[in-house]
Write a protein that binds this DNA or RNA. Structure first.
Length: 578
RNA sequence: GCCUUUGUAGCUCAGUCGGUAGAGCACCACCAUGGUAAGGUGGGGGUCGCCGGUUCGAUUCCGGCCGAAGGCUCCA
């Protein structure tokens, strides 16, 4: 039996054991569903009261007893009527029963004092579970069958493993995730903040965060020019005419900030940049000779996200998309898609993301645009992904109503997936705005429009980067690349001099001339994750050298200053991690 | 929006079984001039998230509101 199947059985069985424990404590509880999930299990209950930490402890103890009691998981097949009788007091189970199609086998599992409607499979006996290899993690609310209109149930999440050691490794992993939390690191490293009183979901970039953002944006712009893009700037608000024409007021209004009235007209803050780029396109008659247009903008947009959905930098109400729109002739589509994909991968690699997976989403049931266009575009996406040798999955019917897309997801340093790049066809806006170009044969034709973001949004990308590197950015991105630390006050002038030289060479350096002792200065720089510390004392002053202390604890003494500059330059140019 | 948890100094947190609060770090001043992760002493700083109720008295009890965290849902 495959290992992962066995683990799933353990987790599913744990869910049953937990349900038994909960029913012991709350005999009137209604039980809903309790599946195995990634890393653990959960069970949903309708309870007479809310749960406390003490309750979780008691449930845990009861579960341990049940596990030690060595009860067999007995499977039996029952008729629908027998099942209805068995679960006559369990309304959610009856609802589940009704959903089982006619003629299908109805199986139940029993372990000692608990019987559940269940497809299985389970471990043979509760003794196959390890009483020291599970932990109840949290209590949360969850709608019955995930529907907002249904009653809210109490969900208990747990994690379960084969051995206590596996459990410990997983708990360590959770601790690692907590340590890397970008909200925590953002505060510790003084990179950004959010201010509820000034508006939730709106990001304030502090000087050090802004330095990193500048490096990202400057690199982004340079690469876009190298890759044949032009930069545009567009307004932040537009009259309702624009959003009516684009269709956003029809299908996207709930996600937009409400209108501002001026001169009897409604103005809306932009939730997307596309209509503005289209206005630029429309400004003059376009020939096939003008295409492709590749227009990029770091465009800040505002969207109304539900308060409960906001999360640090990952989900905000105001964010800057690294947006671009390609307006191309049908002939150019294939090459352009391939270029966009190649460019995306290059960008992601540059930031240290090498584990990349693609997802192609195809035509959903409700959609606009002719079938041939969808087919042509979807094929172009597939060809591009295959040409780059990317692994990919197809999400059938998962595209937006206006066109198919490729999403690229990266894996970060601890294996979590994040969606960053997206390349999306749009068959809707060219129609709505009646975009045309005059082709070689003198006939006006409709161009293809491709919407793409490589990093997604600057805010979210920054959050992902921060967690990926756990705050220890590679030197090219570090907000402070070099801390110059004099051993004593007599070294202050030399330290200042070195700082100045480094700054003049374009590096981000500072000298710590505070009245702290050297040890404290080193500690501070280390906590701020500064990659290079130059320790300056009498020896260094006499010889024109520096003593280098690296963030990773390594040291190099008596390094000629010019040698250090060379080393730093190489590191920054290569974008390598220290 | 809903469920659970939560909101005390800039940060991390303690505390008051109802009598208007403390620690460490940070900040300021003074002393100390120190060779690879915290030198010493002193000081300033809080209407205990907001509004209302109970009470002689509320940061503490009760109710409402707002925010945050973890979920459900959605997504860049």
């Amino acid at each position: 039996m495959a290992d992962d199947v066995k683990l799933e059985m353990i987790r599913h069985s744990m869910a049953h054991v937990m349900a038994e424990a909960v029913l012991e404590m709350f005999p009137t509880a209604q039980i809903a569903i309790g599946p195995a999930i990634e890393n653990g299990f959960y069970y949903d209950f309708d309870l007479p009261r809310s749960l406390t930490d003490d309750d979780l402890a008691e449930i845990t103890e009861r579960m341990k007893k049940i596990i030690h009691s060595d009860k067999e998981f007995k499977r039996s097949v029952v008729s629908r009527d027998e099942a209805r009788e068995l679960f006559k007091d369990q309304k959610y189970k009856l609802e589940l029963l009704d959903a089982i199609e006619e003629g299908a086998e109805i199986s139940i599992y029993n372990q000692g004092g608990f019987t559940d409607l269940c497809r299985g499979p389970h471990v043979a006996s509760t003794k196959d579970l390890n009483a020291d290899a599970f932990k109840l993690l949290s209590v949360a609310g969850a709608y019955w069958r995930g529907k907002e209109t249904n009653p809210m149930l109490t969900r208990i999440y747990g994690t379960a493993w084969r051995t206590p050691k596996d459990l410990r490794l997983y708990l360590d992993h959770l601790a690692d995730i907590e340590k890397r939390d970008h909200r925590k690191l953002g505060k510790e490293l003084d990179l950004f903040s959010l201010h509820e009183e000034a508006g939730p979901g709106l990001v304030y970039w502090h000087p050090k965060g802004a330095r990193i953002r500048q490096v990202i944006e400057n690199f982004w712009r340079e690469e876009h020019y190298k890759n044949g893009y032009e930069m545009v700037y567009t307004p932040h608000v537009g009259k309702s005419w624009l959003w009516e024409t684009s269709g956003h007021l029809g299908f996207y209004k709930d996600s937009m900030y409400p209108p501002m009235e001026m001169d009897n007209m409604d103005y809306y803050v932009k939730p997307m940049n596309c209509p503005f780029h289209i206005m630029i396109y429309q400004n003059s008659k376009k020939s096939y000779r003008d295409l492709p247009c590749r227009w990029a903008e770091l465009g800040t947009v505002y969207r109304y996200e539900k308060a409960g959905a906001l999360h640090g930098l990952m989900r905000v109400r105001g964010f800057t998309q690294d947006d671009a729109h390609l307006i191309v002739t049908p002939d150019q589509m294939d090459d352009e898609i391939m270029e966009v994909l190649r460019f995306s991968l290059y960008m992601l690699h540059s930031f240290g993301f090498n584990d990349i997976h693609a997802y192609i989403s195809t035509k959903p049931e409700k959609s606009v645009g002719e079938q041939e266009k969808w087919d042509a575009a979807t094929e172009a996406l597939k060809r591009a992904v295959e040409k780059e040798g990317l692994e990919y999955d197809i999400d059938e019917g998962g595209g937006a109503f206006y066109g198919p897309k490729i999403d690229l997801k990266i894996k970060d340093a601890i294996g979590r997936e994040w969606q960053l790049s997206t390349v999306q066809f749009d068959f809707n806006l060219p129609e709505r705005f009646k975009l045309t170009f005059v082709d070689k044969d003198g006939v006006e034709k409709r161009p293809y429009m491709i919407h793409r973001a490589l990093l997604g949004s600057i805010e979210r990308f920054f959050g992902v980067l921060l967690e990926h590197y756990a705050g220890a950015f590679p030197p090219w991105l570090s907000p402070d690349q070099v801390a110059v630390i004099p051993v004593a006050e007599v070294g202050n002038d030399y330290a200042k001099d070195i700082e100045k030289k480094l700054r003049n060479l374009g590096f981000r350096a500072f000298s710590d001339l505070s009245s702290d002792r050297m040890n404290a200065k080193i500690r501070k720089a280390q906590q701020q994750k500064v990659p290079y510390m130059l320790i300056i004392g009498e020896k260094e002053m006499a010889n024109g050298t520096v003593s280098v202390r690296y963030r990773n604890g390594k040291q190099a003494f008596g390094v000629p200053f010019d040698d250090f500059v060379k080393e730093l330059s190489d590191k920054v140019a290569s974008k390598e991690q220290l």
